[in-house]
Nucleic acid binder design. Structure first.
Length: 416
RNA sequence: GGGGAGGUUCCCGAGUGGUCAAAGGGAACAGACUGUAAAUCUGUCGGCGAAGCCUUCGGAGGUUCGAAUCCUCCCCUCCCCA
């Protein structure tokens, strides 16, 4: 058994705040004495089926708890997902249907296993519909009676929306209460969350007390910025790097991160040691060091974390080939191409080809791409929007710097 | 229930009878450059084989040669009063 003080050091590493440390210490001690593992909770919003590097921070902390012998309960918020977390939102979220939520939640399970220990004794994944779907209206009123409007409105984003005269639907006020009730149901000892979850987690403590359950310890973790370097990483913003993405995608997306957050990514996304992080900061400050090279190292480290050193090197080689040397990727998709209003394969209008291959959403977009010099056919730039192309032979089409498509006659369908 | 302010293209937001497919910013896409899918700069950014035409400014009608802009009704949001 590891001494409590060491457990605390381990768990404290990388967390921004623990509410309250003394309670955690107490819980750890009791768990050790009674041989009863702690229940560690983290909730996920099922609106986005891809787990990304931001989620990974919390998942790794969950893993630490598991390795110390504790039990992790991951809550897929299928019911809360129908509300949508109002955190950091300036507007009402679009409501998902229950079917959408279920479909999204299904993919979480598999992805979780990339980081968290899947041993059923140490991991439980539940959807909060398990209890919310069974609550009667009287139960809901009971829950609603445990908290006050003023306390809910203390929350920044509600206040901001309220002051900004923006709509807040009644059901959104329930979000923190529901999240809190999850903690009641599973008897959570600890809840992990990114800093923006502080309010929700603190409400959970109150709700637990109101239901006569010992309040959970709240551990707040840093929020990772997305690939734009500013907004927090999230699927809906489109600035995320998914942990299940292909190595080349993870590598490439990492390379697109602004230089300013390289060090932060080393710490939070590549989770290097403190010494290494310090070394990176030194190098970043050194004008002789090209930040690009640090970013390459970062990208390799992140890929290696989810795949392997080999795959990381492979992704790097491919990246260099495409961007530094203008070469080709390892795999080039061969999509179905539907051509409308074209006579035969020997002479096909280039605009129709680009659109048909899915490289542009409309003829206008395809035309623009061509006019701007962004289109290559078999390596040659084509700028003529009236260009006629024979598709009787396979063709390599490149749109911009990184979208490649091979058109083979067998995949071409003429329509109209 | 009464009074007031609003709903504009992916997002924010200007526009109050023609010069509006609609300013500006963001996002996105392309090009240049480079140290990289960073930064910066430039261009594009509703649809149509591009000519002119078609569809768009909460919805439905109406006025007008002409409507995002004016009128009527409806839907939705916010504020104040009750």
């Amino acid at each position: 058994m590891i001494p409590i003080s060491e457990q605390m050091d381990l768990l404290r590493a990388g967390t921004l705040e623990i509410i309250k440390e003394a309670e955690l210490e107490e819980k750890l001690a009791r768990a050790g004495k009674e041989g009863r593992p702690l229940v560690v909770k983290q909730g996920f919003d099922p609106s986005a089926p891809d787990l990304h590097l931001g989620h990974a921070i919390g998942l790794r902390k969950l893993r630490q708890f598991q390795d110390l012998g504790h039990r992790v309960v991951v809550i897929i918020g299928d019911y809360t997902g129908m509300v949508g977390d109002p955190s950091e939102r300036s507007d009402t979220r679009p409501r998902l249907t229950h079917e959408q939520v279920l479909a999204n939640a299904a993919t979480y399970n598999e992805q979780l296993r990339k980081i968290v220990d899947p041993d059923p004794a140490k991991l439980e994944v539940v959807m909060n519909g398990a209890w919310f779907s069974r609550m009667s209206f009287a139960d809901v009123m009971d829950l609603a009676g445990k908290y006050t409007v003023a306390r809910i409105l203390e929350r920044d984003d509600f206040t901001a929306r309220f002051k900004g005269e923006l709509p807040i639907s009644i059901h959104e006020l329930f979000y923190p209460l529901m999240q809190g009730y999850d903690s009641v149901e599973i008897r959570a000892d600890v809840e992990l969350g990114a800093t923006e979850q502080k309010f929700n987690c603190l409400v959970a403590r109150e709700i637990q007390k109101a239901y006569g359950v010992e309040p959970e310890v709240v551990m707040l973790l840093p929020v990772l910025e997305g690939t734009d370097g500013v907004k927090r990483m999230s699927k809906s913003t489109g600035n995320y790097i998914g942990i299940s993405e292909a190595p080349r995608e993870i590598y490439g997306k990492t390379m697109s991160v602004p230089d300013e957050i390289i060090a932060r990514y080393f710490e939070l996304a590549a989770c290097v040691s403190d010494e290494e992080a310090a070394e990176v900061r030194r190098e970043l400050a050194d004008p002789a060091v090209n930040p690009r090279d640090l970013k390459r190292r970062l990208a390799r480290a992140i890929v290696a974390l989810y795949y392997s050193e080999d795959e990381a090197r492979g992704a790097e080689e491919e990246f260099d080939r495409i961007f530094a040397k203008g070469g080709l990727p390892d795999e080039i998709p061969e999509p179905e191409v539907v051509l409308a209003g074209q006579g035969d394969l020997s002479s096909v209008w280039i605009v129709a080809v680009v659109k048909g291959a899915g490289l542009a959403a409309s003829n206008g977009e395809a035309r623009r791409l061509i006019q701007q010099g962004g289109l290559r056919v078999d390596g040659e730039v084509v700028r003529d929007v009236d260009y006629a192309l024979s598709l009787e032979e396979p063709r390599l089409i490149q749109a911009g710097k990184r979208r490649f498509v091979r058109i083979v006659p067998a995949n071409v369908r003429l329509e109209g």
